[in-house]
């Protein structure tokens, strides 16, 4: 019970979830309409979008939500570095990088937190 049961919960979801999220996607369609695939502006826009994704990564890594916060910072950073190195070393395989990063996080958490 959290006060968001029934219809009210869905009205809240539309007001503070759907609308604030999709207004940016809609603006993207409006702004992007006139842009050419080869345009220089698009190189900048892509760099900004990539940098924001990097920001999301750093935010979860350094200021983690929920149970991820119980993992020490050293474990989180070691795990993401190991996962990234595995991705670079093993034929740029996303799956390998993901598996190695997760394995290091679980192993580190198991030894350090228990």
């Amino acid at each position: 019970m959290n006060g968001f049961e029934g219809l009210w919960g869905y009205i809240v979801l539309i007001l503070v979830g759907f609308l604030p999220a999709d207004v940016w996607r809609l603006l993207g369609v409006i702004v992007g309409r006139g842009l050419d695939e080869e345009s220089e502006l698009l190189v900048w826009v892509r760099a900004v979008a990539t940098a924001v994704l990097a920001g999301v990564i750093a935010k979860i890594l350094f200021f983690p939500p929920g149970s991820l916060a119980t993992m020490p910072l050293s474990v989180r950073v070691t795990a993401i570095v190991c996962g990234f190195l595995a991705f670079l070393l093993v034929r740029r395989s996303v799956f390998t990088g993901l598996a190695v990063g997760e394995a290091v996080l679980i192993a580190g958490g198991y030894w350090l937190v228990r």
Binding site: W24, L27, G28, V31, R46, A49, V52, V56
Partner: peptide, 8 residues
């Protein structure tokens, strides 16, 4: 972030 992502 969805603004630049969609534009790109």
């Amino acid at each position: 972030r969805f603004l630049p992502m969609v534009v790109a």
